[in-house]
Design a protein around this nucleic acid. Sequence first.
DNA 1: ATTTGTTAACCACTATGGTAGTTAATAATA
DNA 2: TATTATTAACTACCATAGTGGTTAACAAAT
Lengths: 267, 267
Amino acid sequence: MVVNNMIKDNVISRLMQLGLSEYEARAYISLLKESPASAYEIAKNSGIPTSKIYEVIKKLQSRKMVQSIHGDRSRIFIPQSPDEFASTIRLAMEDSLGAIKEELKEFKTDIETDYTWSIRDYDGLILKAKRIIDTAESTILLSIWPQEMELLLNMLTTAEARGVKVIVVHYGATNIKIGRIFKHPVEDTIYAQGDIRGFAITVDSKEALICNISRKKIEAIWSMNSGFVIMVEEYIRHDIYLVKVITRFAPLLKEKFGDRYEGLRDI
Amino acid sequence: MVVNNMIKDNVISRLMQLGLSEYEARAYISLLKESPASAYEIAKNSGIPTSKIYEVIKKLQSRKMVQSIHGDRSRIFIPQSPDEFASTIRLAMEDSLGAIKEELKEFKTDIETDYTWSIRDYDGLILKAKRIIDTAESTILLSIWPQEMELLLNMLTTAEARGVKVIVVHYGATNIKIGRIFKHPVEDTIYAQGDIRGFAITVDSKEALICNISRKKIEAIWSMNSGFVIMVEEYIRHDIYLVKVITRFAPLLKEKFGDRYEGLRDI
DNA sequence: ATTTGTTAACCACTATGGTAGTTAATAATA
DNA sequence: TATTATTAACTACCATAGTGGTTAACAAAT
């Protein structure tokens, strides 16, 4: 979807995501701001050409988002309340999704366990991570840096509230409180110098997602392949172990391996 | 939305509702049925022109619904699992809806309390009823005939499971078990003869929806206007009262008012 | 030679955004 | 009173993009 030069109002683009055209979204919002209003008024304070307003309103009516009532000299319109709108959409969506899930059950082979998926854009990575967290049932193992933590914290919190065990290796200091969190003293390790950071997550020993994030490019891999999952799990546990070792024996290690513990890479 | 002569596969039209084009939906389903598959194969067993399959797949890839891997002679493709797909969509949807609700909060005046909405199609009526039931918090009062009961029973059951008190006046016999159900002995009253039936619902003393349904046309009214709501509530309670009276004093009434109790209309 | 795999070009239809122009009723003004 | 403006309501037309659908061309594999 090409975004026109103009930066579109956030609300409007959101509504467009839900299937409205831009004019429809603008007309609806205009009505929310001021109602009841005649078609002409809506056109004026929404910036929609007066010539277009009637078909736009017709569409909105057919979507049950506005309703006409009889004004003095002409028809005037009132909007469905946003709550009502949201509820209706959600209902329809849940309906569709439920039905689809049901109908696609027969095809649900074990496609996903055999392959790995690669993801090459940051948004895709975050979306995938969210989905994984969202469907977690018992345990989440996570190795993460602050940048990603910020984006996923909400999801993690709700997962934990759901009763999911959350175990986190967090790179760098933080005062976030979630599950069992191990703070990795980044500044003391070799990772501090590079401009790439890692990201890894596994849930329920069933699926795993790992990624190296740099400014230039990202390359994430997701899979349900059990070997892969076990590997990632081990990797994170290893990280936890490392944190424990470093924090516990820091002085001693410094003495033995130097200031940056390069030797630890091989543990 | 005009439905083409051809009756489209249910699954496909569902997927289309979620924003896929027909070709995209067909290609995806084909992949679920058999994967991995080359573009050519997908085209063949989905009925999509081979000349179109590549752009279609490209779109699906950009939607993260299929992924290409390197096969022996050419690229082959695997689908995202339906579960994964459903979860991702749901997540995105909830995201959008949440954001919209938030952003539209400022506009949320008391639009809806002042007006009445009229609904003239059966689907719209049922949708509205579902939405109302879905958002009920404490009490549902319902006057209903079997036809509509069938369509709304699921919603009512989940509402009740949520802790909502459900009180129903059901016209005609039934063995449905839900909340407090009062079975209206239709056959004994004046209603039995007409070909129109009523429908009324109120929830939480906040909103109400009433309708007269005949074969020719329907005209439903919904409102949050408190006067209207109270009126509908009273109407339903009156109905309950009527049921109690009829069932308790049937013989006596029959004697006094004749076989069809015409006199009761005025109670 | 036929199947498989890939790309390009074209047509038709529809939805959408965008511009003009028409008609009628008021309101302002000469 | 007649004549401009302005407001309001609505129709018509055009360009573009997405989609479904067809034909052609061409390379590689069996």
